[in-house]
């Protein structure tokens, strides 16, 4: 069956912080170039799941596979490197290194993942996302829309296998919501990555055929 050969899949993940709050997540299977939505209201463990998928939080039970690699079978340093190279993250609030420019943030992303820095690639990516003219701006001086584009550029610059987005649309109006999702899908397809969006934004249900609801 094709289902178990997906780019990203999980195997019976369970995690709890306290005895009262136990998460038992459904298995996820998402192929390359495929987009998937993980829907859920606040408190159902969306961020926890996202962090588990991103290799940031080791679940108490279960395993995450990206390609043929079991994330939590890797050592700490291996996991950091793997995350840098193969997982692109888009945060709800865009976080950047404040002291450096938009372009330098992209170059740093390559460097941190152990890739050679490629200024041309960074610049062309910024131009493609219509923020080429802002490449020398410090991130905190950019508008919210520009910051979001920059964080998408950062998520895809290393051509990751998986792109994980955390509430990318929750602060946006309908028009911009659609735009951002289109951009994410388009960019993920271009680098042939699986795209997983974790959100409580029900508007996205209509755009994605493929979704899981957490409860």
């Amino acid at each position: 069956m094709f289902t178990y050969c997906g780019m990203l899949r999980t195997d019976s993940i369970k995690h709890h912080y306290t005895n009262a709050q136990r998460f038992d997540f459904p298995d996820i299977n998402c192929n390359s170039s495929e987009a998937m939505l993980i829907l859920g209201q606040s408190g159902v463990g969306k961020t926890t799941l996202l962090h588990i998928l991103a290799g940031i939080l080791k679940p108490q039970e279960g395993q995450v596979y990206i390609g043929d690699k079991a994330l939590y079978g890797l050592s700490g340093n291996q996991l950091d490197k793997f995350r840098g190279q193969h997982i692109g993250l888009v945060f709800q609030k865009p976080h950047f290194v404040q002291s450096i420019t938009a372009e330098e943030n992209l170059l740093l992303t390559q460097k941190m993942a152990g890739q050679p820095t490629d200024k041309k690639l960074a610049d062309s990516l910024l131009s493609k996302l219509n923020i080429g003219h802002r490449k020398s701006a410090k991130a905190y001086k950019m508008s919210q829309g520009e910051q979001q584009r920059l964080s998408i550029a950062r998520a895809i610059i290393n051509r990751p296998k998986v792109i994980l987005a955390d509430e990318p649309t929750s602060a946006l109006d309908d028009k911009n919501c659609e735009k951002v999702i289109d951009l994410l899908k388009e960019q993920a397809e271009e680098v042939k990555a699986s795209l997983l969006i974790v959100t409580h934004d029900n508007r996205l249900k209509d755009i994605f055929s493929n979704y899981i609801e957490l409860s």
Binding site: G76, N77, D80, K81, L89, H95, V97, M112, A113, R154
Partner: peptide, 10 residues
């Protein structure tokens, strides 16, 4: 934290 997410080691 971001630097770690981007692949930086502790």
């Amino acid at each position: 934290s971001l630097l770690r997410v981007l692949g930086g080691k502790p």
